[in-house]
Structures are given as C-alpha cells and as structure tokens.
Write a protein that binds this DNA or RNA. Structure first.
Lengths: 237, 237
DNA sequence: CACAATTATGAGCAATTATTCGCTTCTCGC
DNA sequence: GCGAGAAGCGAATAATTGCTCATAATTGTG
C-alpha cells in the first residue's frame, strides 16, 4: 500500500462539462463512504456504487484511492483558510479576546459539517506522504499566522510566542474536533466561551514571577521521566 | 470485518509458564508492527514473524487481530492510571498549580514511550466497539476525577466545572500527544511549563464580568454557523 | 523410557479489494 | 443522421490478508 511514489494526477483531464459534475459526485460519495466505514474499509467499489457510477469511471477521474482522499483534504483545508480569512477581515482590529473568539468560532464551523470524515482525514494523514505533506504545510502556515498575531498584539504576555502559537493552534484544532465528535457533545455556545476564555487568559496573564524557563540550556534537560524508554520504538527496519 | 459480536477471549487459557512469555513476545511485536505500519497494514503474519513465532501460535493466545490491539490499549491505560495515582498521592495536597503540573507531567511521560503506537490506538478506537467502550470508560473516569478536583479546590473560579473538566482533560491528552508526536517536537520542559500555565490561569482567573452564558436557554442557541449542514452525513444504509 | 496432554508450526483456504481493459454507449460537429 | 473520439461500463485479475487445521514438536509424569 505505501509503496513509495504514486501518481496523483487523474488519468484523464476532463474536457466536457458533465465531467466536472462527476468529480463532485465521486467526492460526495467518497466523503460519505469514508466517514461511515473509515479509509481502509471504504472501498472504491462502494464509493462508485454510492455515486451511481462504475468503478471504471471513478478511475477515469482519480488515479487511485489516495488521490480521492487527498482532494477531500485539500478542499477541507481551503475552506477552512477561506473562512478564517473572511472572518478575520471583519475583526482583526478588535481586542485580542475578540480575535481569538473569531478563530475559535471559525474552527468550530469548519468541524461542524462532518466530524467523522475529518476524523478519517486526520487518521490517514500520517500514512500517506502526499497527505502528510499537505497537512504539515497547512499546520505550519497557521502557526506562523498565530505567531504573527501574538507578536503584534501588545496584550500578549507569554515568554515565547513560537511555543505559545503552536500550543494554541493545536489546542483549538484538536479540542474542537474531539469535543464536537464526542458521542455526548458539549453544548456549543458554552464550549466556545470557555475555550476562548482559556486561551485569552493564558495569553494575557503575565507570568507570576518568572515563568520563563532558563531557555538557554543547550543540553536537553528533562523535567519528567528520565531514561526509561520502554523499548527502542519508532521506525527502524 | 466489523461484523458485530466477536470473541475476545483467547482460545486457550495458558497453563504453562512459557505461555506468559509468549503473550509478552506477541504484544511487543504487535506494538512495533502497529506503530510502524498502522493497524490495517499491520498484518498478523508480520507480527508473528517479528515475534519469531508462527501465526498459528499467535492465534492460540489471541482469537483475532482486534483482541491484540485491545490488550495493548488496556495496558497503556492501566499504566497511565497507575502513574497518575502514584504521582498524585505525593502532590494532591499542594496548590492547584502543582496538581495540574503533576497531571501534565504524568501525561507527557505516558506519551513519551511510543507516540506512534498511541496514534494507532486512538485511530482504531472508533471502529471497534470493544475498543470504543474501553476508551470511553477511561475518558469518563478521568473527567469525573478532574471535576472532583476542580470542585474541591477553592481557587477554581470557572462557571461550570463539568465543561471545564472536559475541556482540560481533552486539552492535556490531545495536545501532549500531538506536540510530542510532531516531526519537529517542541522542547519538552518549556512545553510542560506553558501548558500548565495555560490550564492554571484559565482555572483560577475569575470571569471578567460575567463570563457565564445564560445557560438556562432550553433551545439550542447557536453562536456560529446556523443551518447549513452540507449533506445528510453519518450512518445510513 | 513411554505416552498422553499441551503447545507450536506454516501451507493453504476463503474472502476481500484496488485496479485494469476490452467493450459499449453517448456527444457533437458536420 | 454519421462517425470518431470521449465517456462510461463492470467482469475479471492479481495481490493481499485474516485465520484454520492437519501435523509435528515439546513437556511433564509414572
């Protein structure tokens, strides 16, 4: 399955109008199939069946299964970026708390549609180089944007805006996803308020005395668990 | 594959001493195979090969692939609970900030071993009823414990300790995992400090004026995106 | 040592699945 | 309405994989 390189362009560029329609049909069907069965069990035949087309046709538009998921992921991310940009244009000048709230809200919106599908996307990301690359790039740009925001806002009092940026971006993305996808989902309005509050207080509260760690220590000092890695894990072979 | 009920007990109770050894061999091999290839591509034959036993033997101890992952998950969770309990016995009486730090640290420790494997566990959880149940129970107990802690500590100033408990439990679990498993991992000590700070400030800062939402509104008021669920997603068939 | 119970083996079965390709059907400019 | 290329079809293929079972090795006991 994960055998190195892989064609990602469709075998045939669409030339007629109905083609574009088909692409959308396939994507819609794939979204539902992946959401319901997961990636591994979401077979191309099932996707074709749900889209009311034949497998052969499916492979006319996407060279393989991976390419379908990749396009799904790309579209989701593009939608997220677009939504964020749209919202932030209205609020960028406001106080930090407002900007954060906009961020949180945009993320919630982006996840409300289809948490299941999103779950599958995130699952599969680490296994496909193309996907991994796409997701990593997106994540990186979001962190960069957040860092910029923090640097620009004078109310921000954290020691290290890079770490803080990564922390808040991950927090929003992950927590929103998990708590919305949960079988017993939290009440959205309150959740939005609390998450925003958490991030805002964190960013604007000055360090008690000197929360700043030494930070110059070159050697990796470890405050927790020292030397008992259960085994030589991680990739090898 | 996901065909309803499923035997989860091994086909044969071990009666000799070497049996216990085999179980451990299998588990170790499975952990590595799953971590490296993921669940779907982590074949039982590969596990057996790495464990230097035959597939047949593997199936003498575990009735199927799922059961192997289930035991892996169970062990990981038990280890986490045990570690948390051990640590908290030493610190439970301290100020909130200290307790939180202990929590964060315990979680970090628990994830440092093998982030990849953990990733696979979390991925697979939603697809296997038995796994899902196990994970849900664990999550619930952690939230309950956190709520208790918040209720007991007077410094805590949030409006709704239930929501706050869910928020912080999810945050710690998810963010620790993501930022440790990242290709460019954050510096652990600083990360621990920042995450602890974020949670502590959130919990102890009183609501600006009245951060409390109305909370009595029976109708689901929606602060964000109203009515445009892209499609009828979720299970059908 | 013998022999019965327990445990280990691994070739192979049955099922699943991504992908192909020879063929039919449709589209549209003439 | 013709015909050539575009689009669509789906049975067949090749590969993979979870798991079984007939057989062999190992163990402990008298």
């Amino acid at each position: 399955m994960s055998s190195g390189e892989q064609r990602l362009q469709p075998r045939k560029k669409p030339r007629q109008v109905r083609s574009e329609l088909m692409r959308q049909r396939i994507l819609d069907a794939a979204a539902r199939v992946f959401a319901e069965h997961g990636y591994a069990a979401g077979t191309t035949n099932r996707i074709a069946e749900l889209a009311r087309i034949s497998v052969g046709s499916l492979y006319q538009y996407y060279p393989n299964k991976d390419a379908i998921l990749l396009e799904l992921v790309t579209r989701h991310m593009d939608a997220g970026v677009a939504a964020t940009e749209r919202l932030e244009r209205e609020e960028l000048s406001g106080p930090l708390a407002e900007v954060i709230r906009v961020f949180v809200r945009a993320t919630i919106d982006n996840h409300l549609d289809d948490p299941q599908l999103l779950q599958v996307m995130l699952e599969q990301a680490p296994r496909s180089p193309a996907l991994r690359e796409r997701v990593a790039r997106h994540q990186k740009s979001r962190v960069a944007y957040a860092k910029d925001l923090l640097d620009r806002h004078p109310e921000v009092r954290v020691a290290d805006t890079e770490t803080a940026a990564r922390l808040i971006v991950s927090t929003v993305e992950l927590v929103v996803h998990q708590l919305i996808a949960a079988p017993d989902p939290v009440p959205i309005p309150r959740f939005e308020t609390e998450l925003t509050a958490m991030l805002t207080t964190y960013l604007t509260t000055p360090p008690p005395e000197s929360r700043t760690p030494k930070a110059t220590t070159p050697g990796q000092d470890q405050p927790s668990k020292v030397g008992m890695p259960k085994a030589t894990k991680l990739v090898r072979e």
